[in-house]
Design a protein around this nucleic acid. Structure first.
Lengths: 326, 326
DNA sequence: CCTTCATATACTCAATCTGAGCATAAGGGG
DNA sequence: CCCCTTATGCTCAGATTGAGTATATGAAGG
């Protein structure tokens, strides 16, 4: 085979941010609305010369625009592949764009981005991922479409596809694994059930499918969000990142709702408390919250010291078996 | 503040590989020996135009050189910071190098790299990380140096440093956390206990410290290896990646030795077997290995299907409390 | 004041998991 | 046949986990 050993002609390097916030038990992503073909986009910008470190570049750049302290920043992934964007922004440039995606967590905030910035619930983009009110409505129709997709393959491919669907979507006896959000998105993408995967802009079923698979984004931005969701869902189980999303003082229920918002599952209340308490993740402030709608709750504060005590303090989330509420 | 909004003038983008292999219960990294100032280096090369995806670029590039199928490739991290390399290769170019680091696992192999390629035990670079034969010999002297470092700080910084040392090195009641390899390396770096952190090449204590902190590498390559170690140690606990390092057929002890090689800890034999068996990670081949030195052992095979069954099958590693062997 | 509602918080219990260890099996070398 | 070495089976107590019951406490409404 012939090999082109010449270095790639890099056109630009983008920093792309998935900025996450939770308010009233709903998880939000910062997006720029209507950024191309009616699709939303993640905020992104070119890597700049004055960015001493990538992380610092990211931080200053997002903070300047959201006017908010970023509690937590983490590199997500570097995307450098070149799938043919049907409705891409950089179609035709021919060069490669490397985009470094970062995950940032902020406390409840209003975006002050210029333009069309807004917080949008991440379940607008992934309705399938939200099990908090029971089985998501889009699940059955989506599975039906997927079945069609697996039936459309050859005899061998058919079982492989069915297996994969069963695995990622938690069919039969298998448990739903909240962390497989990215795999699920990729499966839908392969099955062409997301608008981003379709090259013909004005396809008939587009609206239908969008209603099922969720709101699309430009390029691979939705994949980046899925990456963030998967990562975050995994991370809260072993590192105390939840607290980056909460105000200084909070009740245990607020903490639980935040965990539920991210994981998309309901948790067993008493056990959740037991976990948090015995891990000594929080301490009492002495104050009470009276606006709970019931018995007032103690206001708690994150014990920053725990990072120094236990190997991996975090919040293990396990869905309650029963469908409804604890 | 003034902000330089011009895009960074990227000079080049490197792909850097941490290729890991385990042979006879020892974990090896593929390195290029004596790559600059007598320091070893990780194999790396520029991103090329014909690399459709980054992953594929990485794969073809390493496979061409090691002549071995890469079972597993994973993006590790993108390093783009610009610390002043004291003995760097690209000193003086002024531009930024973005390096994409990948982790690759191969089965037992001999490297066919041109030049000075070799497999080197990763504990040559991190002697501190190997607890398999009991407490590592370098631990006490290193801790003494670190104590000096924390004492050298101001009254406030002193406790903070001591806490951090205690946390990452598992002092007092705290357990040693094998996954904190990267944090430990970074701590040693900050404390200037690794040659890479020293700007004056011919320092008196260099040899002394190298003997304690392990063999250095050029630039930030040792940090990249530390990242790989931390990642891998975490990963084996919840994904069946161990098998990428083993031959088709293996005994349970081989499997255990591989886990121990990576984690740097001895495991409880019976419990390890119980775990592997009840997770149904392996199945019998029917054959026996007679070269065990004792009673012959069943040869097992990885059940690839498990990926399709359980949410996150892996090998939970927990060190035995007793220092010696199980 | 008393009831209803809604949440907070305490405590129980069985099933399972986990760390540790004892005991026995089976090949090779003297 | 004895000893060494590794393989494999089995036990057991303590910790963890999933699920639930019971009780506490404020606000709102009659």
């Amino acid at each position: 085979m012939t090999v082109d050993e010449s270095p790639a002609s890099i056109i630009n390097i983008d920093l792309t941010a998935v900025v996450v916030m939770v308010a009233d038990g709903e998880p939000y992503v910062l997006v720029l609305r209507d950024s191309g073909g009616g699709f939303d986009a993640l905020p992104f910008g070119p890597l700049q010369k004055d960015h001493g470190t990538l992380q610092a570049g990211m931080r200053s750049w997002v903070e300047r625009r959201t006017q908010h302290r970023l509690g937590y920043i983490e590199q997500l992934y570097t995307f450098g592949d070149r799938p043919p964007w049907p409705k891409g922004l950089d179609a035709g440039t021919g060069g490669r764009t490397l985009s470094l995606a970062y995950l940032a967590l902020v406390q409840e905030a209003h975006p002050s981005f210029v333009g069309h910035a807004a917080w949008r619930s991440w379940y607008d983009y992934f309705p399938l991922e939200d099990w908090r009110e029971g089985t998501p409505a889009v699940r059955e129709p989506l599975l039906a479409h997927l079945e069609g997709w697996s039936a459309a393959a050859g005899p061998r491919g058919r079982t492989a596809r069915a297996e994969r669907i069963g695995l990622t979507f938690g069919l039969s006896e298998r448990a739903w694994d909240d962390e497989r959000a990215l795999e699920r998105y990729e499966l839908l993408y392969e099955a062409k059930l997301v608008p981003e995967a379709r090259s013909d802009a004005g396809e008939a079923t587009a609206a239908d499918i969008e209603a099922l698979a969720g709101r699309p984004m430009i390029q691979d931005h939705r994949r980046i969000v899925a990456t963030a969701i998967s990562r975050l869902r995994g991370k809260i189980k072993y590192r105390p990142v939840l607290f980056e999303l909460l105000p200084e003082k909070f009740t245990l229920l607020q903490l639980q709702r935040t965990a539920e918002a991210l994981s998309g599952m309901r948790l067993h209340k008493q056990n959740f408390r037991r976990l948090v308490e015995q891990q000594r993740l929080v301490e009492e402030t002495g104050e009470m919250a009276t606006d709970t709608g019931g018995r007032p709750a103690k206001l708690m504060r994150f014990r920053r010291e725990v990072t120094l005590e236990r190997p991996a303090p975090g919040v293990r989330v396990t869905a309650t078996r029963r469908a409804g509420y604890p």
